[in-house]
């Protein structure tokens, strides 16, 4: 049955088709903001996307090549009545070639991505800025403690919020990323900013610095990317990137005065 090979070919064509289609559909493509589906809003995001594309091209080309070879072989060397199989020990040269080429590709990818990894993850590359906030992941919310106007954590002017992350876009901060300290109050969670391509596990007992930038003011999302229990889906937070520092300060002042509220402005107005 030589026609099986056509079925295999179709499966391969379908897979390749999906990948060819993906970039043309914002829903299928990388998580970017709806009005700019092809613009990653952060510097790290663009680096990670370019790594992603390089790997996608490499694996895509290899996939197409191997699929063509497989379909061709299964078409050409189909079992025929009366044909006799030949046995041979193998080809050392061929084996060396198909070991060395993938190994070389892997080494290339490993070396090529190192700079980006170091820039995003190594503690030594953490930006020398005052921390924006301390973020505590717990079942099932993000408890965010902002450093407040004095820029220091654990002082009386700290702002305490839940599921509401705010920072200023990077152009306004001399291209410096925002820095948070991530910790967990209970189990493993993962701090995931899909649009900014940042993902970091929150590990009980560790305080982990995480930094991220964004060059477009707007609304984004913070999610938990580590299944942490029945309420995992509830760990969803708003992320607001402010146009400039003044905006951010104005927001923080407003939130601080809410936090310092000591009387009801108008009792009479009551409920809704």
């Amino acid at each position: 049955m030589r026609y099986w090979s056509i079925l295999f070919a179709l499966a391969a064509v379908f897979s390749i088709g999906a990948f060819v289609y993906a970039p043309f559909s914002p829903d299928w493509w990388l998580p970017n903001s709806a009005n700019e589906p092809y613009h990653a809003v952060s510097k790290f995001g663009r680096e990670i996307d370019s790594l992603f594309l390089i790997i996608l091209w490499i694996t895509g080309i290899v996939f197409i090549g191997t699929q063509i070879a497989l379909v061709w072989v299964s078409w050409k060397y189909i079992d025929k009545p009366g044909s006799v199989a030949t046995y041979f020990h193998g080809s050392q040269r061929l084996e060396v070639i198909w070991t060395i080429i993938p190994a070389a590709i892997l080494v290339f990818i490993a070396l090529y991505q190192m700079g980006t990894w170091a820039e995003i993850k190594f503690r030594s590359s953490a930006p020398k800025v005052l921390p924006l906030a301390e973020v505590t992941a717990r079942q099932f919310q993000w408890v965010i403690r902002y450093a407040g106007p004095d820029g220091k954590l654990h002082t009386t002017d700290d702002l305490h919020l839940v599921n509401d992350l705010h920072f200023v876009k990077s152009a306004e901060k001399l291209e410096k990323p925002a820095l948070i300290w991530l910790q967990s109050g209970d189990v493993l969670h993962s701090f995931f900013l899909p649009q900014l391509r940042i993902k970091q596990d929150a590990v009980p007992g560790l305080k982990i610095p995480v930094w991220f930038d964004c060059d477009r003011a707007g609304q984004y999302e913070l999610l938990c990317a580590e299944l942490c229990g029945w309420g995992h889906y509830k760990m969803r937070s708003k992320v607001t990137v402010h146009e400039n520092q003044a905006d951010f300060d104005e927001w923080m002042q407003r939130k601080l005065s809410e936090q310092n509220q000591s009387q009801i402005a108008a009792v009479a107005q009551g409920g809704k």
Binding site: P131, D150, K152, H154, T155, T156, D157
Partner: peptide
């Protein structure tokens, strides 16, 4: 936070 003063 080691960088932060404890009281204000």
């Amino acid at each position: 936070d080691p960088k932060a003063g404890n009281t204000k």
